[in-house]
């Protein structure tokens, strides 16, 4: 039965290919119909959500054709003249294109490579501690920074890092060193961005991994303890495999959004002396907005980012399937 079903499932995506094997065609249609009837309740309860996607996600995507048009409000979406990729040209031909891509990928990549493992480690530690009260305190406190806006974060960073009266520089000075203008020195800016992001978001992202850890059956741990497995072995052999699906999922989704470099953070933290290492696609688009009302440019760049994200997620999905035995499907 399940074999039929998976055949039916793949059918949907490969309608044309199977069409020529006309012999079993009507039979397969019947089987598909049966399978669908069996799941009629699921279709019924999912219908509102699918309708939601159709209306609130796909109609805007249809509207996104303004990316390829010179959008004129009075002419409407269909009526506006077609200009092809012209809206994207300003971006693709920007003298900073390469730098913008590098910076964007660097920031989201670093968040993924550094931020995620730290969050996972913190989740594991929270899971392992025997002091329930302490765990609750740490958990509650560490997720609080998520609520701080970047404007406030800038104030905190300035208080710590200002070369004139920042705490860190006071310490450097007291050891006889020269104060460092962390926020305006290209060599330091990236570290500050990544570090402050990790500080702000790690606690919040542990929530997900903790929820995953909690859904692992305690019997597994008990059995391992009986077998004499050490703590580390239990983490390695039970905890990590237990949350692997979530890790894979989050990684894949983050890869899909690799060209989202964290606009608000950069926008608040960067300044002219560090543009070379701080300017990302979104800040550039923002600064370009004064020209064309952002009607089409932002949409076009949004679609461009989608194409890159799609490619990346497809490739990494295959890799994930091969190496972790998990993917998005």
């Amino acid at each position: 039965m399940s074999q039929f079903m998976s055949a039916a499932t793949t059918r949907v995506g490969r309608a044309q290919r199977s069409a020529h094997s006309s012999g079993g065609f009507s039979k397969r249609v019947r089987q598909l119909g049966l399978a669908m009837w069996k799941h009629r309740w699921i279709y019924l309860i999912t219908a509102p959500t699918l309708l939601y996607y159709l209306v609130f996600k796909y109609i805007p995507l249809y509207n996104a054709q303004i990316a390829f048009k010179e959008f004129q409000p009075l002419l409407g979406i269909e009526g506006s003249p077609w200009v092809g990729l012209q809206n994207l040209e300003g971006f693709l031909n920007s003298i900073y294109f390469g730098q913008l891509m590098t910076n964007t990928i660097f920031f989201s990549g670093a968040r993924l490579v550094l931020g995620m493992p730290i969050a996972i480690v913190l989740a594991l530690m929270l899971h392992e501690t025997r002091f329930a009260f302490f765990r609750n305190v740490v958990q509650t406190i560490t997720y609080l920074p998520h609520f701080l806006s970047w404007v406030i974060m800038f104030g905190i960073l300035l208080m710590l890092l200002s070369p004139s009266d920042g705490l860190v520089n006071e310490i450097i000075k007291s050891f006889g060193g020269e104060p460092i203008a962390f926020l305006t020195t290209p060599n330091w800016f990236r570290q500050i961005v990544i570090g402050s992001d990790i500080w702000k978001e790690t606690g919040w992202s542990t929530i997900l991994y903790l929820a995953a850890l909690l859904s692992i059956s305690p019997e597994l741990y008990e059995a391992a303890a009986v077998d004499g497995a050490s703590r580390l072995q239990r983490i390695w052999n039970i905890s990590l495999p237990g949350i692997l699906p979530v890790i894979v999922l989050v990684t894949l989704l983050r890869l899909g959004n690799i060209l989202q470099g964290g606009f608000t953070q950069i926008f608040v933290l960067y300044s002219l002396p560090v543009y070379s290492v701080g300017d990302i696609i979104d800040t550039w688009v923002y600064r370009s907005g004064i020209l064309d009302f952002q009607f089409s440019l932002a949409t076009a760049v949004g679609l461009f980012k989608g194409v890159i994200g799609l490619t990346l997620i497809m490739v990494s999905n295959q890799l994930a399937k091969r190496f972790a035995g998990r993917n998005l499907y």
Partner: peptide, 19 residues
């Protein structure tokens, strides 16, 4: 009217001046 490639132009100008 603003420079047709204002984002590039402004950044080049501002960044160099400040450097």
């Amino acid at each position: 009217n603003p420079h047709p490639k204002a984002a590039d132009f402004n950044r080049y100008y501002n960044e160099n001046i400040i450097q």
